[in-house]
Design a protein around this nucleic acid. Structure first.
Length: 370
DNA sequence: AAGTCGTGGGT
DNA sequence: TACCCAAGACT
């Protein structure tokens, strides 16, 4: 290994070495992903489709690669271009997004597509231009600029924070260390292949420099890594202890018509599960004694307790008692019926599929022609 | 600027 | 089991 000294020039060369080692590793060990153009094809002159880069990056916000794959393929099948997505109905986009979580992303995705389609010149090709679009924050703007447009942007996501905090044994809690981490990344970003560098950092974090039990023996940067040399890489990044998760309770009502249709309604656009579809429920702090239950049901009827479900959101846990009744065809104001053939295509978040399944097992599964 | 916003897989 | 946390954005 080359001798180190304290000059600025040496520091720069050291950073270049890190990028070179990382890119060499990426050339051999990169993941093959549906939205990715591999380095071999980039070397032949292929360019990524900014629409696909954008779509994948928004889907990947706080979401695992495995969860995204099938949604990415389905979206690309339905809406192959940003113009196609702009021409879609927001309601259909919400339906296609159902199950992926963080539903404001879907609304912002559609709003962003509308703006880009109206621009008529594709996506902005700079970090600044991208940052102005709905649903595109600091990370996503940098990622699209680097991956789709070959800009030397500093891409900092949770993987990069972990890798860098270990490389330099950053003991400051993560919330306060972001600026320091960004400075390190800015020094490392290479002039050539900045998009591959960003994806390489994320692949390294996802496959080698994992939160627990990192595979340091396989890491191309182990000689550069302060935390590995000191013997306890899992100590980084340092996070502040988190508060306790409160729990809420409520009751949900699955009303079934004679043809098997289920009564649904649409939630308000903003806030939790905004714009998504649900069965009628009490408020989610309500007590579930008999009096409250009868008052909140969409129909007076022969309600039977079918069971209860629990669902854990990011900042609270929810327990819902699920009531089930067969009812007549009246339609309460603001509600609608969804037949067994239609229900799997509704914009039902996972918590609501759990509720319906508790009352009618199999009801939300996709029907297969026979 | 700390809280809000989903879900599923790994350990 | 209970906890961690993932290619974060928005307010």
């Amino acid at each position: 290994m080359a001798p180190h000294d304290q000059t600025r020039k040496a520091v720069h060369r050291d950073s270049d070495d890190i990028a070179s080692r990382l890119l060499g590793w990426y050339d051999k060990h990169h993941r093959d992903l549906p939205w990715r153009v591999p380095p071999r094809e980039l070397a032949r002159g292929a360019r990524p489709d900014p629409y696909r880069v954008w779509l994948s990056e928004v889907m990947l916000q706080q979401t695992t690669v495995e969860a995204v794959k099938s949604y990415f393929r389905a979206f690309l099948e339905k809406w192959p271009t940003v113009d196609a997505l702009a021409a879609a109905q927001t309601e259909d986009v919400m339906k296609a997004w159902a199950g992926l979580g963080y539903y404001s992303r879907a609304r912002n995705l559609k709003a962003c597509a509308d703006i880009v389609a109206r621009r008529g010149d594709g996506f902005p090709d700079t970090e600044t231009g991208l940052r102005e679009l709905p649903g595109i924050g600091a990370y996503t703007a940098a990622a699209i600029a680097a991956i789709a447009f070959d800009r030397p942007a500093s891409v900092v996501d949770g993987n990069v924070e972990r890798v860098v905090s270990r490389l330099f044994s950053i003991a400051t809690p993560l919330t306060e260390a972001k600026g320091e981490i960004r400075v390190h990344v800015e020094r490392m970003v290479p002039a050539a292949r900045p998009g591959d560098f960003a994806q390489a950092m994320m692949d390294l974090g996802a496959t080698i420099c994992t939160p627990r039990r990192p595979r340091c023996m396989l890491c191309p940067l182990r000689e550069d890594c302060s935390a590995t040399v000191s013997g306890d890489p899992e100590r980084f990044p340092v996070r502040l202890p988190k508060g306790e998760k409160p729990s809420r309770r409520g009751a949900a009502f699955v009303a079934v018509r004679s043809d098997g249709a289920i009564l649904l309604r649409k939630r308000v656009e903003k806030g939790l599960l905004g714009g998504m579809t649900e069965v009628p429920t009490t408020s989610w702090t309500a007590r579930t004694d008999g009096a409250t239950t009868d008052a909140a049901a969409p129909f007076p009827g022969n309600w039977r307790l079918a069971g209860s479900i629990t669902h854990v959101f990011t900042h609270f846990a929810l327990e819902l008692d699920v009531f089930h009744a067969h009812v007549g065809g009246d339609t309460p104001a603001g509600h609608f019926w969804s037949t067994p053939a239609e229900i799997s295509g509704e914009a039902l978040p996972t918590v609501m599929k759990k509720v319906i399944e508790a009352a009618i097992p199999g009801a939300t599964k996709k029907q297969r022609p026979h």
